[in-house]
């Protein structure tokens, strides 16, 4: 599903954000991506959703190759991936429901079927009762749940989570992890980047550790 082969990425000459990375993520995997700030976790995630491209090596995601993908194909790839961030990236001028529905509307969905999908995604993260609230009126944990619902509404094969608990309190973080585990149980692969090594040890599971752009543990 996701293959990263010999990938190196540099943003400035002589300094590698990622160096010789090999990684594969398959259906149903739950993988932690750990490492200190600046170790290359976000870069790796950006390479998977093809926001950036490797200088060396190749990334293959759901049949799309980083070396051959065309610009107009990137939206098609993104429609098959769910992405959440530390800063939620919710639209403040839209309600929770509208934020989730937005992910479907931009590709032409509408009507009752779309509504059903949105309500199902909101129910999955336990946020149905807050659907008419604007993001600035709900807590950080709830905002992240809304972001997860938006990422899930397209039923992606993989969910990329870049420090999803970085901006929320420990209790809400536990909820978010639990939701991610439930999503994983239903078959969606999850790649979660976090600098919190204690959290990963506590939860167990597969882990990839990055240090200065190199993979040190898998």
């Amino acid at each position: 599903m996701v293959e990263i082969r010999n990938v190196s990425k540099s943003f400035k000459k002589g300094w590698y954000a990622l160096k010789d990375i090999n990684l594969s993520i398959n259906k149903g995997d739950f993988l932690f991506l750990t490492g200190p700030t600046g170790s290359g976790k976000s870069t790796l995630i950006r390479l998977i959703y093809m926001d950036i491209f490797p200088d060396k090596g190749e990334v293959a995601v759901a049949g799309f190759l980083s070396s051959t993908i065309k610009r107009h194909e990137i939206p098609l790839l993104r429609q098959r991936i769910g992405i959440i961030f530390q800063d939620f990236k919710l639209l403040q001028d839209k309600t929770v429901y509208e934020n989730v529905a937005f992910a479907l509307e931009v590709t032409g969905s509408s009507g009752r079927k779309m509504k059903e999908k949105v309500m199902k995604a909101l129910a999955l993260v336990g946020l149905s009762h807050k659907r008419n609230e604007f993001p600035y009126r709900i807590s950080g944990g709830e905002q992240q749940k809304a972001a997860i619902a938006r990422a899930l509404v397209r039923e992606p094969f993989i969910l990329l989570a870049d420090e999803p608990t970085g901006n929320i309190d420990p209790e809400a973080s536990g909820d978010i992890i639990k939701i991610l585990q439930e999503i994983n149980t239903s078959g969606t692969a999850v790649l979660m980047a976090t600098h919190d090594i204690y959290l990963t040890r506590k939860l167990g599971g597969n882990m990839v550790r990055l240090e200065e752009g190199r993979m040190v543990e898998w």
Binding site: R78, L90, L91, F102, A103, R150
Partner: peptide, 17 residues
């Protein structure tokens, strides 16, 4: 700007954006 960013993330094509 964030609307455009989110549109790109969720797979909207340039015309829709």
């Amino acid at each position: 700007k964030q609307t455009i960013e989110v549109m790109k993330l969720v797979g909207a094509n340039e015309r829709t954006i």
